[in-house]
Design a protein around this nucleic acid. Structure first.
Lengths: 149, 149
DNA sequence: AAAAACCCTGTAGCGGCTACAAGGTCAAAC
DNA sequence: GTTTGACCTTGTAGCCGCTACAGGGTTTTT
């Protein structure tokens, strides 16, 4: 199987396959006489594995680590689980941050009344207030009323 | 005020200030005889405005647009609001995606029982099953099943 | 007068691709 | 046979929002 076929089967771009090879996530395949990459079914499996991990938003470095771990049968499953849980915590933290952001943007948008000119825009007013370090609807007084930065 | 003082007041890195100038978010300031940037209070206000928008995770291009809009007093506030709401929708979409991810990673982690060797690791099994296109705990039945989104 | 702290420009790196350029190879249509 | 077109190769650069260097010059402090 050549690179185009492999990429099609895994649903990725040909460039991405080469990129993964460079990054050590895919073993370098055999080459034909003319230098074309020749892949077998194991390569497709590996590529699907990588893509599955990517769909879980794991960084390539962690996927590489996972591949390493899975090669050494003496390794405890706990290490794999720790990696997954660490990643889960990252995702959770990011989700919570976005949730807070959502509230802030909603509060900001609520400042705006239709039909105004920007000179009277509640949003811009709010955003510019921040330039003076004041509390605002989107970043309401954190605890001691200090600047959000 | 020189660049270091400006950066300190806004709580950003000196490099970031220069970067914003290059990117057209901060006006180029006057220079001293020896070529040092000399900032006034307006620059600090602008920089705080940019940082505030960044704390709302707005891309620089949108902040630039916001600055443009705010300069033209004939512009309707609706344009500002539309920009904010579009950004809000992006944030919402991303948050929902992360929420789904969280569930998937939790399901995956639950596959793992402590003390196993990787050879018997539920997580790796799951991830590798994906390589055969099978349904798995973390990505349950895509076709007919309930989307976690 | 030396040392430390500051400033300047330019360049490169991060992650995870994506796109382009300039060429080589191979199959099928004419 | 040849010419198109689809495929393949390598190398390079771009995206975003910084951050970090390198290699110099200036100002302030000791």
């Amino acid at each position: 199987m050549r690179i185009g076929e492999l990429a099609r089967q895994a649903g990725v771009d040909v460039q991405t396959v080469r990129y993964y090879e460079r990054e050590g996530l895919l073993d370098a395949p055999a080459r034909t006489a003319s230098g074309y990459r020749a892949y077998g079914p194991r390569h497709l499996e590996r590529l699907n594995f990588v893509r599955h991990c990517r769909s879980l938003d794991m960084p390539l470095a962690e996927i590489r680590r996972l591949i390493e771990l899975s090669r050494d049968t003496r390794v405890s499953c706990d290490q794999v689980n720790a990696l997954v849980r660490t990643h889960l915590e990252r995702v959770q933290a990011k989700r919570k941050a976005l949730q807070a952001l959502e509230g802030q943007l909603q509060a900001l948008s609520a400042q705006c009344e239709s039909g105004h000119r920007v000179a009277d825009c509640g949003i811009l007013e709010e955003l510019i207030h921040a330039a003076h370090g004041e509390a605002c609807a989107c970043h309401p007084a954190q605890l001691s009323g200090q600047s959000p930065l």
